[in-house]
Write a protein that binds this DNA or RNA. Structure first.
Lengths: 171, 171
DNA sequence: CTTCCTGCAAAGGCTTTGCAAAGCT
DNA sequence: AGCTTTGCAAAGCCTTTGCAGGAAG
């Protein structure tokens, strides 16, 4: 198979490191390790893009684990989050719960096209600096943030608005 | 009864304007007006702070409308949103759906204390400017955004930190 | 009179939980 | 052995929908 799921050479290592980290957390908590949970973690780290719980389960099953159950994925999620393997994202008005791989990735935020659903990640040190400043002003200790810009991408705009001739409707 | 729900003199006017706007939208859509929906709208505009659907229903009932039903509130929500009477907010990781009055209010974002739940609103033109710039860079036309800073407020920090001498807290 | 609105109840999604069996250490 | 983990099914939220009667235009 041509490089379908192959990402970058460093990625496979990262997956392993993520698994180690998860196992470490599991050990710290005095829990047991489990092949299924590892498979879930692996699927989560390797997942390209944003996913929902069902997507993750599907991915796990694709990876060979046949009996995996949705409840099990749900039960694994808190651990994955705590281990920093995944993080929650808030796409599209919070109607659904999305996650994405978060291991050894820099924090980033999202630009979401409301027409085609395209998600673009962006990172801006300037934003972060301003956030820190703002938090300080309110005597807050920041732990995280959510920053999502909703709009319409250029492609969709050109597709939808070729009849843009300043007629009636505005804004 | 003393000024319980009295806010500012301009606020009552705003409530009426919000109602007018809603009625206008209703008329445009060829729908009927209804006392209950107005009561829901009124409760929404007057609501102090963020609320969920249940809170809104409660408020409506407090206002004298006894039989109001949850389904009715749900059915009114899209209209209130479209009329710009309320807007959705995305507090605390999108696990629940919050709304807040949005009529004739400037856009603002939130700073949320994860310990005590306090929500502080902030507005920063600098942020907005940067967002516009960033959107432009990606050829996006912005329609809205979500920006929420999560952290711990000073009060909670001072409350929690000094007593931090417990030994084996497995938390 | 026709169409919309409402309460009620039932149905739908998604997520969590109780249980007993199977698995890890 | 003594714990955790899992599948399964049932229970739980929150939200939506179908229906019949009441209200608005």
């Amino acid at each position: 198979m041509p490089e379908r799921t192959r990402k970058a050479p460093a990625q496979d290592d990262a997956t392993e490191r993520a698994l180690s980290r998860l196992r470490e957390l599991v050990r710290e908590k005095g829990l047991n390790s489990s092949a299924i949970r590892d498979a879930i973690a692996r699927a989560a780290v390797t997942f390209q893009g944003h996913f929902e719980v069902g997507d993750l389960l599907e991915e796990v099953r694709k990876s060979g684990v046949k009996g995996a159950h949705l409840a099990t994925v749900y039960r694994a999620l808190p651990l994955l989050l705590e281990a920093g393997v995944i993080q929650q994202t808030m796409l599209s008005s919070g109607e659904r719960h999305f996650y994405e791989s978060a291991f050894e990735r820099e924090h980033h935020d999202h630009l979401v096209c409301q027409k085609c659903g395209t998600v673009i990640e962006f990172r801006s040190e300037a934003f972060e600096a301003m956030e820190r400043e703002l938090a300080a002003r309110y005597d807050f200790e920041l732990t995280s943030h959510v920053h999502e810009l909703l709009g319409v991408c250029g492609k969709c705009r050109r597709k939808a608005a070729p009849a843009k001739r300043r007629a009636s409707a505005s804004s």
